[in-house]
């Protein structure tokens, strides 16, 4: 459609015959903000979305994973190929995404365990970028339960700090609580197509 392309670009150039001058973007908004204890705030804000949050010492992460899975009765768990071996706790069968799991395999699992790239304390958001211990996007989407481990050094205060840490050309997923909708009377209810349960373990280092 090279033809339409030049038509549209030509229309834009004619529409901008006045070439309005643009002032510099005022970036006097906050690039960070004193928010007190970021770990506490992240825990509170993630929980605000009705996700369950647990803070444990790094060394106790495997035990916490084991107890959460046992409590749910989750025995078939999906994990990315580089899921730390200490996280692959006993009591569950680990479906590792190598070779790639089929959609039906993902759909048939009890849940998925991943790490994350960044967490935003103020908004209670986890960001996955397909990097370490995260895998491809479908892994954290199809299973109905997502257990995510966040290291305290991955937690930032506000949105601009998070974006500065991320590489935009990687596939990114920002997750704030379990899936939800406000489509009925503009009131939020949790649990639609994405994972209906989100548990977060904050590994305090």
């Amino acid at each position: 459609m090279a033809d339409t392309r030049s038509v549209v670009l030509g229309r834009i150039r004619r529409a901008l015959a006045d070439r309005p001058s643009v002032e510099a973007i005022p970036r006097d908004y906050d690039l960070s903000r004193p928010l007190g204890d970021l770990v506490e705030l992240a825990a509170e804000r993630i929980a605000d979305y009705r996700a369950e949050v647990h803070q444990v010492a790094s060394a106790d992460v495997p035990a916490k994973i084991a107890s959460l899975l046992a409590a749910r009765g989750a025995t078939r768990m999906v994990g990315p190929v580089d899921l730390p071996s200490s996280w692959r706790v006993d009591g569950a069968e680990w479906l590792i995404d190598s070779p790639s799991l089929s959609i039906d395999q993902l759909d048939g699992a009890d849940g998925v365990l991943t790490g994350c790239a960044v967490a935003i304390a103020e908004t209670g958001t986890l960001v996955l970028d397909g990097g370490e211990a995260q895998g491809r996007r479908a892994l954290t989407l199809v299973p109905d339960y997502h257990l995510c481990v966040v290291r305290t050094d991955q937690i930032v205060g506000i949105v601009p700090e998070a974006l500065a840490r991320l590489e935009p050309t990687r596939p990114l997923t920002f997750i704030s609580g379990p899936s939800a909708t406000s489509d009925i009377e503009l009131d939020r209810v949790e649990g639609v197509h994405g994972p209906r349960t989100l548990h977060v373990i904050i590994a305090v280092t």
Partner: peptide, 9 residues
């Protein structure tokens, strides 16, 4: 909301 549940990039 402080943030919507999902943003994909």
């Amino acid at each position: 909301e402080r943030m919507n549940p999902y943003t994909s990039v």
